[in-house]
């Protein structure tokens, strides 16, 4: 599977990273090299092998339903780029 500039741009858009046309070209070269490396996997027959998401076969621990958090808005919003009346401000969300 070979990658195209259009693929790079589509990924960049999905990932919300601005890329110029020049960047896309340069990125394409590097990503193609990485994909070539990844392609080695295709030579392995993995039929019937259970995928491994975690290194140990454990199950999820459950938390008791208790409110443990207190209001920390002030401390959290001290590092926010833009806030007003306790709200995080962003350019208008269009629906």
């Amino acid at each position: 599977m070979s990658l195209t500039t259009a693929d790079v741009k589509r990924m960049a858009h999905l990932a919300r990273i601005e890329v110029s046309d020049d960047d896309a070209e340069a990125t394409l070269k590097k990503l193609s090299g990485i994909l070539k490396l990844i392609e080695q996997m295709q030579s392995v027959d993995t039929t019937g092998i259970q995928p491994m998401s975690h290194s140990q076969d454990l199950v999820q621990r459950l938390r008791e339903d208790v409110v443990t958090e207190t209001n920390q808005r002030e401390s959290f919003q001290a590092i926010a780029p833009a806030v007003e009346d306790g709200l995080y401000l962003v350019p208008k969300v269009i629906e």
Binding site: A82, E84, D85, G86, L87, Y88, L89, V90, P91, K92, V93
Partner: peptide, 13 residues
């Protein structure tokens, strides 16, 4: 998203 915060902006709660 709360609209009508500052002009042209949305507020996030």
């Amino acid at each position: 998203s709360v609209h009508g915060a500052s002009e042209g902006m949305s507020g996030i709660d």
